[in-house]
Simulated assay, not measured.
Amino acid sequence: MKYLSAACIVALLSLSACSPNTKSDSGEKTTLTVFAAASLTEVFEDIADDFIKTEANIDVKFSFAGSSDLVAQISEGAPADVIATADETTMDTLAGDDLLSGAPSDFASNTLTLAVPEGNPGNISSSQDFSGKDLVVCAPQVPCGAATQNWAKQNAVTLNPASEENSVTDVLGKVSAGQADAGIVYVTDVARADGGVEEIELDGADEVVNKYPAATVDASENKDAADAFVTFLQSEEAAKTLTDAGFSAP
Results as ranks from 00 to 15, higher is better:
residue 154 Q to R: 08
residue 104 P to D: 14
residue 120 N to C: 05
residue 114 L to A: 13
residue 142 V to S: 13
residue 137 V to N: 09
residue 99 L to Y: 05
residue 141 Q to F: 13
residue 112 L to W: 06
residue 130 F to P: 07
residue 97 D to S: 15
residue 104 P to Q: 11
residue 132 G to R: 00
residue 142 V to H: 09
residue 90 T to L: 11
residue 129 D to L: 03
residue 103 A to P: 02
residue 98 D to L: 15
residue 144 C to E: 09
residue 146 A to I: 02
residue 92 D to T: 07
residue 149 Q to F: 01
residue 91 M to A: 11
residue 89 T to S: 10
residue 155 N to D: 15
residue 126 S to Q: 05
residue 144 C to N: 11
residue 122 G to Y: 12
residue 122 G to H: 08
residue 155 N to K: 14
residue 138 C to S: 15
residue 129 D to K: 03
residue 139 A to L: 10
residue 89 T to D: 14
residue 95 A to H: 03
residue 155 N to A: 10
residue 102 G to R: 07
residue 146 A to D: 13
residue 94 L to A: 11
residue 136 V to T: 12
residue 162 A to D: 06
residue 157 V to K: 13
residue 118 E to Q: 14
residue 150 N to C: 05
residue 136 V to M: 02
residue 109 S to M: 01
residue 158 T to C: 07
residue 101 S to D: 15
residue 162 A to I: 04
residue 125 S to G: 12
residue 104 P to W: 00
residue 136 V to R: 01
residue 93 T to M: 11
residue 121 P to R: 04
residue 106 D to K: 08
residue 92 D to L: 15
residue 135 L to S: 05
residue 152 A to G: 14
residue 134 D to P: 00
residue 145 G to S: 03
residue 164 E to N: 05
residue 162 A to V: 06
residue 147 A to C: 02
residue 93 T to C: 05
residue 106 D to H: 14
residue 139 A to G: 13
residue 137 V to F: 05
residue 103 A to G: 00
residue 122 G to W: 07
residue 158 T to W: 09
residue 152 A to C: 10
residue 106 D to S: 14
residue 111 T to M: 01
residue 96 G to S: 14
residue 150 N to F: 09
residue 143 P to Y: 11
residue 112 L to T: 05
residue 160 N to L: 11
residue 90 T to S: 15
residue 128 Q to N: 15
residue 114 L to R: 12
residue 124 I to E: 03
residue 125 S to V: 12
residue 148 T to R: 07
residue 139 A to T: 14
residue 121 P to N: 01
residue 163 S to N: 07
residue 105 S to G: 09
residue 126 S to L: 03
residue 162 A to R: 07
residue 138 C to Y: 02
residue 149 Q to W: 01
residue 138 C to T: 14
residue 94 L to Q: 09
residue 151 W to K: 13
residue 112 L to H: 03
residue 90 T to A: 13
residue 140 P to E: 15
residue 120 N to A: 02
residue 121 P to E: 04
residue 136 V to Y: 03
residue 144 C to Y: 09
residue 138 C to D: 15
residue 157 V to N: 12
residue 117 P to M: 04
residue 150 N to H: 08
residue 97 D to L: 15
residue 138 C to V: 03
residue 116 V to N: 03
residue 163 S to W: 04
residue 102 G to H: 10
residue 126 S to E: 04
residue 97 D to M: 15
residue 117 P to T: 07
residue 121 P to S: 00
residue 147 A to F: 00
residue 159 L to C: 12
residue 118 E to H: 05
residue 113 T to Q: 00
residue 159 L to R: 06
residue 105 S to Y: 06
residue 97 D to E: 14
residue 137 V to Y: 10
residue 148 T to D: 11
residue 148 T to C: 13
residue 100 L to S: 09
residue 135 L to E: 07
residue 147 A to T: 02
residue 117 P to A: 06
